[in-house]
Write a protein that binds this DNA or RNA. Structure first.
Lengths: 229, 229
DNA sequence: ACTGGTTTGTCACTTGCTTGTCAAATCAGC
DNA sequence: GCTGATTTGACAAGCAAGTGACAAACCAGT
């Protein structure tokens, strides 16, 4: 269950937000002024913060900056009274992830907070893998070798991904065909060899002597991220 | 024998699935609406679930989430009417392991369910065995002896696996030929001796005095994991 | 114990299948 | 229809399974 910290001095709005997020099964903590907000943030480290910029005590802006400084990955959604363009720029400078102007629709706020959390989650765990002198960025669907990007086709990438996900395991051609090519296409098993050949040519230091994409005679292939030397 | 829970309101599809999986010797349980599905899941804890997203009663989505929450390791394959990409994302958020769009090919569904079960099993336990100073990793298809990997060919590995699965039993050459080599190939029984010889050379401390791969004169061979000393 | 026949251990060689690799054919997206 | 990706087919090369020969071990009956 995710936890949300609401920092808002207006008791009415605070109550509305509390209900809104409780109904969605979030764990909600509240604070009504800056200093208290900072303490609550520091002690509970919530998964997201909803922050009213106009606060008594510690300024909302300062608080936003502090939060983002101490935990850049925690999404902060700002509540702002004015819908000023200049304000929008300011928010970005503060490091806020999104903003909603009062009066706001609860559902919109909910959606924005959830979206911000999704983005944050995705950014936190940027799926990546590396082996030898190759780095694979799954989000960008590209491999980088010695700093230079390697052009991989969609199929090659799917195969590479499956190899990485099943590192060390011996994978039969049938298994590869099923999982990488899909259940509805039935190419010959030679196709697998060819695709592996491509990966070797593009990613192995010496394609003729593969150390990562190893063949297991009579069985299939095995991907070895860290070959013994 | 593995058990499958089919949660599907369409009686026709339900029957098709039942036949399909019964033919493959699965134990099939069925439910035709959400609440009933949840009860069946909770009481029978099946090895895999096939779930139609469009259900009367408890929503299929909610049910999927609940199942995954209470038992993350149980694979759930979703039946979906729409082949929407956005839907695909949704499914992953629900925690489903795979999905098949209607109309579907029974064989494809079977393949996907089996693949999901394989993956789940793989994640749960890495099948391994050990005897003497040898460790056998079935997924990697390799044996490790005193930390050093031992190269085994596909056939040698199949033979080794059969020995391990039938430890202590005396296995005749005919039995070995049938089970390890297959029913369609009939090499001479000398072949078996040779293959056993290879295993001894690679895995015994003293190949000339085998303690694990013992010959039973006039009968065949016996694998002894823990020899008396 | 001895002996002969049978079974098994072991090795080198052959054969056959598996795989690497390339080029041509086919397919898919623009 | 063009372009790049994918698949197929052909051929060569490599590896491992299978075979047969011989020696050693084993067993049974004397």
């Amino acid at each position: 269950m995710s936890s949300i910290l609401v920092i808002e001095d207006d008791a009415g709005i605070q109550r509305v937000l509390q209900r809104l997020f409780l109904a969605e099964h979030y764990d909600v903590k509240t604070a009504s002024e800056g200093k208290q907000g900072w303490d609550a943030f520091a002690s509970s480290s919530p998964d997201a913060v909803i922050l009213d910029l106009m606060l008594p005590g510690m300024s909302g802006r300062e608080l936003c900056r502090s939060i983002k400084e101490s935990s850049p990955d925690t999404p902060v959604v700002v509540l702002s009274a004015i819908s000023d363009v200049a304000d929008k720029v300011l928010l970005l400078e503060l490091g806020a992830d999104d903003y909603v102007t009062k009066p706001f629709s609860p559902r919109e706020l909910l959606a924005r907070v959830q979206a911000a959390m999704r983005r944050a989650r995705r950014a936190r765990v940027r799926p990546t893998a590396s082996f030898g002198d190759v780095q694979v960025d799954f989000a960008r669907m590209q491999a980088i070798r010695n700093g230079a990007p390697v052009v991989l086709t969609a199929h090659e990438f799917r195969l590479l991904r499956f190899f990485i996900e099943n590192a060390e395991r011996v994978l039969t051609r049938e298994e590869l065909l099923n999982e990488v090519w899909g259940y509805n296409s039935y190419p010959s098993t030679r196709t697998v060899d060819n695709q592996v050949l491509k990966l070797r040519q593009k990613l192995e230091v010496n394609p003729a002597e593969p150390v990562h994409f190893c063949t297991v005679h009579g069985a299939g292939y095995r991907f070895v991220p860290a070959p013994p030397r």
